[in-house]
Design a binder for these strands. Structure first.
Length: 992
DNA sequence: CATGCTGAA
């Protein structure tokens, strides 16, 4: 009975509280079952939520249902006490007076000394304010949706069509104007380039490659329209290409000039793909002619590295056998197997390129399972779908669902992706397959771009966006199917989504949940969703042969460089991908390789060395997607950006150093540290898999088989256990989930991290002493930044410096460097940076940079001159615009006071009073106030010479030293002014 | 003297 009851209670709760969750439902049922009288239930409830007449009525009904006429229950006396305990535990996870750590001592002290009456009234007022605010928010949202629907509510279809047409034309006009200007610029540039080439190389005998290059430039000139489109938007250029895209067909698509921006990008991308493939085929043919095939290792260098061949990474055939054993539904398995074996060998990659869309769809390995898959979805509410990349699950399954009628009565199918680019390109692909325009039936929604309309039925979005939607509509009523794709990546957002979805499927029996994952974790997901069935889709991957070193390598950078040369000399053509940990290592490796090649240049084929990491300027990044010239070989030295985020075609060899740099949040020191760690077995396999996309490949691991088996973790530690989860907790709280610590996570965050997160939220006044969300907290949850930064922005309103703080917040949110510092021009770059320095600290320096960039009309030219990354600045502008747009929502008026550095710094301190460090004269070092950690100012800061007594830092990073990044000078007294509740006990210290 | 892996809102 209890499940049914819970569903009912949840529905009622939804009515009464405009929110719902089953923890609350369970709690209520328990109360009603255990307390002796209804009045006591109500009293107990008042401690939790505001109880109005509606609520009272509901409790009355519940009482009737459960207790009926029966007024006595055993054990009711002791229940009262235990449920109070429960509430208390919900706040801190354990009895707060017993907790360790300074923060909680402070909390305990506060709870004891506080005047309880004042506390109570304050709390009630706060809660009331919060509810009022929520109500206002809701009304505004309603109004907005009404406006939208009114807009779409023209009397006749013709009128609506006309309006849409007009709007569209308007957009297009602006866009075309822009295109023309762009084209002219680029054409000029290209012309000059070609002229240069002709001038310099006229008389010389051009090599094949150079001639190709010239021809290419000329052809580009003709195709400018298509090309400048892409060159413009560096951020998106050439990035992720989801697996399914490999099978893009070669149909000639007419260029529709009026197509939207991303549509064009998509085409350009396909163009690139086609070119890349045909050329790399050329390369392969040539290699065959050279008879360089399949030689095993020859002794080439004195310090040659010996590899041992071990078992290959499973190709398709092997998978099939394994599958038969595991497959739960036998008939499915047999069926799949048969069809697969017939089909598999025939479909070559080349053939795929020339097929029509329909043929491609049929050739994908989900296609044969269509019927059984739909039946399984019909039968089960939750289904785990397991399949190799490239099986077509991301693109095909939503279409199947749509065709099968899951979108009736206006509900949508949604599919989440961990990355923006993936969401965009998959949506574009599906729109094309369905012959619909992107943004109509098929759309996508990502942070800075919502490309959907009222007719959208299939929606691709990033997981973070779906999480945001939970804040607006906690039951996700608009969706009929939710598909979580790439779940095995275990990003923070997917993990949280799981928690929330597990909750809502209990009272939304009509909602279907699909979780798609690579092979490894599916059993775990299945357990989490109460043994949900697993559906396996046979994959299609070429086998990758794995080679391990015979003995451990000490210097893996050098080992990598040597292996590259070994491959280059002994193996047939095919590009090499090398995994290293960071920019510095990549540069070192690059140097080493160029050094070696110099000595051999006449004897070997051409070797192109290309570095690749996120902070690399985008024009350099684009180079790795350019096709390899025939007869040459590309070596890409990459960080783990190449592990999941994007696919590079033509990779046949992978060299794996076995290490990554990972961010760990250390609770005890409150510090993030970036450390080089051995990778996990699953990520080693992921890396190896990169070699087998186009044809059978080889992976060279710079560690021994023994190391792999004994010293590596099986799986990478999920993000939720590695990072600061303050932000996540704030969001969950604002969804009405009270007990965060005992919540049922896929992998729970460490208890200490959770406690710290709650303490910080309390100190920021986002939670009251009962652990309830305050009005401040409600507003903070609305702003998509870390809690401390959100607090800073809200504080800016009091100080009337909102514009300035928003600029600073945006600049701080840009990860990656603002300042570009190439090794060869380090001195000039440092000089250029010094011009922006503000005596009061780095935050203000950043503000200067932004404002000057605005003054230079967002010019890229200007950025290049002063060694600033234009890409980062554009991102900062996007973030700032978004934040400005949100200010109305949190009821903050824009205000500005650019000259007043004191006020700006005070606002920052209000948010970051947790991050204060004091210069101790005896030690000659900085010490954090919170944990007494010895730290230094980061060398890039502008305050390295002054050493003021009190500073606020933005973040603490452990690299080679514990250093504070982005610091400002403050006056110790401000701390009392700004965060008296936190600093009143250290008053004397702060004053001197 | 000292200098950062990747995503997402």
């Amino acid at each position: 009975m209890s499940d049914q009851l819970k569903v009912w209670v949840n529905q009622q709760l939804h009515e009464v509280l405009t929110m719902s969750n089953s923890t609350m439902a369970e709690y209520l049922i328990k109360l009603t079952q255990q307390l002796p009288t209804k009045t006591e239930v109500l009293d107990e409830l008042r401690g939790e939520v505001t109880v109005d007449a509606k609520m009272e009525l509901f409790v009355d009904q519940l009482w009737q249902r459960i207790r009926g006429g029966n007024h006595e229950t055993e054990g009711s006396c002791k229940c009262k006490k235990s449920s109070t305990e429960v509430v208390k535990k919900n706040i801190m996870g354990e009895d707060s007076s017993k907790s360790k750590g300074e923060g909680s001592k402070l909390l305990a002290r506060r709870t004891v000394t506080a005047d309880s009456d004042n506390e109570e009234t304050q709390r009630l007022r706060d809660l009331q304010e919060r509810d009022e605010y929520s109500e206002r928010l809701r009304q505004r949202d309603d109004e907005r949706t009404r406006k939208v629907s009114e807009k779409g509510d023209e009397k006749t279809f013709e009128e609506a069509a006309k309006r849409l047409q007009l709007e569209k034309e308007d957009r297009e006009k602006v866009f075309m104007k822009y295109l023309v200007k762009r084209k002219d610029d680029k054409q000029k540039e290209l012309k000059a380039d070609i002229k240069d080439d002709e001038f310099f190389f006229e008389e010389e005998d051009l090599t094949e490659r150079e001639r190709k290059d010239c021809e290419y430039k000329r052809s580009v000139l003709k195709l400018t329209k298509k090309y400048d489109q892409v060159q413009d938007d560096e951020n998106e250029q050439g990035y992720v290409t989801p697996d399914e895209k490999v099978s893009v067909d070669d149909r000639d698509v007419e260029v529709d000039e009026r197509e939207k921006k991303h549509g064009d990008e998509q085409k350009k991308w396909e163009e690139d793909q086609r070119r890349g493939t045909s050329l790399s085929f050329g390369a392969r043919d040539k290699a065959k002619r050279c008879q360089e095939t399949e030689k095993e290792y020859n002794l080439v260098f004195e310090d040659e590295i010996k590899f041992i061949k071990s078992l290959p990474l499973a190709g398709t055939r092997k998978k099939t056998e394994k599958k038969t054993k595991e497959q739960k539904k036998e008939e499915d398995s047999n069926q799949e197997e048969d069809e697969e074996e017939k089909e598999e060998p025939k479909v070559s990659e080349f053939k795929k390129k020339t097929m029509t869309i329909q043929e491609v769809q049929r050739s994908l390995s989900v296609y044969p399972c269509r019927g059984s898959l739909l039946a399984a979805i019909e039968e089960h509410q939750v289904l785990i779908i397991e399949g190799e990349p490239g099986s077509g699950k991301t693109t095909q399954i939503p279409q199947y669902l749509l065709e099968h009628g899951y979108c009736q009565d206006g509900k949508k199918i949604v599919c989440t992706q961990p990355r923006k680019v993936a969401a965009m390109s998959v949506a574009a692909r599906v729109a094309e397959e369905m012959g619909k325009k992107l943004g109509n039936e098929v759309g996508y929604s990502i942070r800075f771009e919502d490309c959907t309309s009222e007719q959208t039925k299939v929606k691709y979005m990033t997981d973070g966006m779906l999480l945001r939607e939970f804040l607006v509509d906690p039951s996700l009523a608009g969706y009929s199917v939710i598909m979580i794709d790439e779940a095995h990546e275990r990003t923070l957002h997917t993990d949280i989504l799981f928690v929330l979805l597990k909750d809502i499927i209990r009272f939304r029996p009509d909602l279907k949940l699909l979780v798609s994952s690579a092979t490894l974790d599916s059993a775990k997901f299945s357990d989490f969703f109460n043994a949900a069935p697993i559906f396996r889709i046979p994959g299609r991957r070429y086998p990758v042969h794995i080679y391990n070193t015979r003995s451990p390598e000490v210097n893996y950078i050098e080992a990598a460089a040597i292996t590259v040369l070994q491959i280059h000399i002994t193996q047939q053509l095919g590009d090499i991908l090398v995994f290293l940990t960071g920019q510095e290592e990549i540069e070192a490796c690059q140097e080493m390789l160029t050094e070696h090649i110099k000595g051999l240049s006449s004897k070997i084929q051409e070797l192109l060395i290309l570095p690749f990491y996120a902070n690399l300027p985008s024009d350099m990044q684009a180079k790795i997607f350019e096709p390899t010239p025939p007869g040459a070989r590309k070596v890409i030295l990459a960080t783990n950006i190449a592990e999941t985020s994007l696919t590079i075609d033509g990779i046949s060899y992978v060299i794996d150093s076995g290490y990554v740099k990972q961010n760990y949040f250390n609770v005890r020191s409150g510090m993030e540290s970036l450390v080089v760690n051995p990778i996990s077995q699953s990520s080693a396999n992921q890396r190896a898999g990169r070699a087998g996309r186009v044809r059978p490949g080889k992976c060279f691991r710079l560690y021994t088989q023994w190391t792999f088996e004994n010293e590596m973790e099986e799986n990478t530690i999920p993000e939720i256990q590695r990072v600061n989860i303050g932000n996540v907790f704030l969001q969950l709280k604002s969804l009405g989930i009270h007990d965060l610590i005992n919540f049922y996570y896929l992998d729970p965050p460490p208890a200490e991290t959770s406690k710290l997160a709650l303490e910080q939220l309390y100190a920021l006044k986002a939670l009251n002493y009962k652990g309830e969300l305050t009005s401040m907290g409600r507003k903070m949850a609305e702003i998509p930044v870390e809690p401390m930064m959100a607090r800073m922005i809200l504080a800016a309103d009091q100080h009337k410096v909102v514009e300035e703080i928003l600029t600073i917040a945006a600049m701080l949110s840009v990860n990656g460097d603002i300042f570009y510092r190439p090794k060869d021009k380090a001195i000039q770059a440092d000089e250029a940076r010094k011009n922006f320095f503000h005596p009061d600290g780095d935050h203000l320096t950043l503000m200067n940079v932004y404002n000057e960039w605005v003054g230079a009309e967002y010019s890229q030219q200007w950025c290049n001159e002063v060694f600033i990354q234009h890409r980062s600045m554009k991102r900062a502008r996007d973030i700032r615009d978004q934040l400005v747009g949100l200010m109305e929502r949190v009821e903050v008026q824009l205000s500005t006071n650019p000259g007043d550095s004191v006020v700006i710094r005070k606002a920052i301190t209000t948010g970051y009073f947790y991050h204060v460090a004091h210069f101790s004269k005896c030690g000659g070092m900085y010490e954090t106030v919170q944990k007494s950690q010895t730290v230094t100012i980061h060398p890039q800061s502008c305050l390295t010479e002054n050493l003021p007594p009190w500073i606020v830092y933005h973040e603490l990073m452990m690299t080679t030293k514990e250093s504070m990044c982005n610091v400002i000078v403050i006056d110790g007294k401000w701390l009392l002014e700004v965060a008296p509740h936190y600093y009143k006990d250290n008053e004397e210290d702060v004053r001197n």
